[in-house]
C-alpha cells in the first residue's frame, strides 16, 4: 500500500515528464550544444568552435539591429497595451446596461489567429488601395507609407499588436480592479478626496501588482514577435522590422548556419528564463499575501 502510494504520483507524472524530456529538455540541451559548433545541420561534420558563434553574434550588425528592434518593440508595445488595458478596465468598472456584451466584443481581436489579424492589417496598410490611406485621402491628408518607410514600419506593427492584445491586458487589470474593496473608496470620499486623488493614491497602488503581471506577460509575448513580421514585412524594409525570432529563423531555416542560429536561440532562452524568474517571484509574493 505505502510503496504503491509512493509510486503513484510518479506514475501519474510519467506521460508529462516523457513529453517534456523528449520535446523540451532534449531540444534545449541540443540547442546549447549546437551553439558551440560550426555546423549546417547536426553534429556530424561539425567543428567545435567554443564561444565563437557568440562572438560572431556580438559583432553582427544584423543581430544588434534585431535586438534593438525587439527591445524597442517590446517596451513601447507593452507600455501602450497596459495603458490601454487600464483605460478600458476603468471605463468598464462601473456596471451599465450592455457591459457584458461590450466586454465580449472587445475580446474578439485577442482570440483571432495572428495570421488573420496580419491579413487584415496588411491590406489596411496598402499604400495605394488600403483602407487607412483611403480614409486619410478622403479627408484630404496624403497617404502614409505604413510599411514602406523604415522609420515607420515598426510602429505600424506596434499599432497592430496594440489592437490585437490590449484586450488581454484589460482582462488582467479588470480582474484586479474587481478585487479592490469598495469601502476603501467610501472612506476616502468621506475624507474629501477628489476622483484624481482617489485614483492616484488608492486605485493605482492597489492595482500595481496586476499592472506588473500584465506588463510582464505582454513583454514575454512581444519579445517572441515573429508571425506579424514574417507575413507583414519579412523583416524589412532593409532591417527595419527584423526581430531576434526572425534572425533565428533566417539563420537556421534559410541560411543553415545552425551554430549561429542556436547561439541566438540561447540568448533568447536566457532572457526568457530571467523573465520567468521575475514572474515566479511575483507569483510567490502574491501567494504569500
Amino acid at each position: 500500500m505505502t510503496a504503491s502510494r509512493r509510486l503513484l504520483p510518479w506514475l501519474l507524472l510519467t506521460p508529462a515528464l516523457l513529453i517534456f524530456a523528449g520535446l523540451t529538455l532534449y531540444p534545449l540541451g541540443r540547442t546549447l550544444a549546437l551553439s558551440l559548433f560550426a555546423t549546417d545541420y547536426g553534429f556530424e561534420n561539425a567543428k567545435f568552435v567554443g564561444l565563437e558563434n557568440f562572438q560572431e553574434l556580438w559583432d553582427s550588425r544584423f543581430f544588434r539591429q534585431a535586438v534593438t528592434n525587439t527591445v524597442v518593440f517590446t517596451v513601447v508595445a507593452t507600455v501602450l497595451e497596459v495603458a490601454a488595458g487600464l483605460g478600458l478596465a476603468l471605463l468598464l468598472n462601473r456596471a451599465f446596461p450592455g457591459r457584458t456584451l461590450v466586454m465580449t466584443l472587445l475580446l474578439a481581436p485577442f482570440v483571432l489567429s495572428t495570421m488573420v489579424v496580419t491579413a487584415i492589417w496588411r491590406a489596411w496598410f496598402h499604400f495605394d488601395l488600403g483602407f487607412l490611406n483611403n480614409l486619410l485621402r478622403a479627408v484630404g491628408i496624403p497617404g502614409v507609407p505604413w510599411l514602406f518607410d523604415p522609420n515607420l514600419a515598426l510602429w505600424s506593427i506596434v499599432l497592430v499588436d496594440l489592437w490585437q492584445t490590449a484586450p488581454f491586458a484589460f482582462l488582467i487589470i479588470f480582474a484586479g480592479l474587481r478585487l479592490i474593496p469598495q469601502d476603501v473608496y467610501e472612506a476616502a470620499r468621506v475624507d474629501g478626496a477628489g476622483p484624481w486623488r482617489r485614483f492616484r493614491d488608492m486605485t493605482l497602488p492597489l492595482l500595481a501588482p496586476y499592472l506588473f503581471v500584465a506588463a510582464l506577460l505582454r513583454s514575454v509575448d512581444s519579445f517572441k514577435l515573429f508571425d506579424k513580421v514574417y507575413a507583414m514585412t519579412g523583416g524589412g524594409p532593409g532591417q527595419a522590422t527584423e526581430t531576434v525570432s526572425m534572425f533565428v529563423y533566417r539563420q537556421g531555416f534559410r541560411f543553415f548556419d545552425i551554430g549561429l542560429a542556436s547561439a541566438a536561440a540561447v540568448v533568447m532562452i536566457v532572457v526568457a528564463g530571467l523573465l520567468a524568474v521575475v514572474y515566479a517571484a511575483s507569483l510567490l509574493k502574491g501567494a504569500g499575501r
Binding site: 534545449l28 541540443r30 549546437l34 533565428v248 537556421g252 533568447m268 532562452i269 526568457a272
Partner: peptide, 14 residues
C-alpha cells in the same frame, strides 16, 4: 514563457 523559435531547430531534427 520560452520563445518557441528557440527550440525549433532541434525540434525539427527530432
Amino acid at each position: 514563457l520560452a520563445p518557441p523559435i528557440a527550440l525549433a531547430i532541434p525540434l525539427y531534427q527530432v
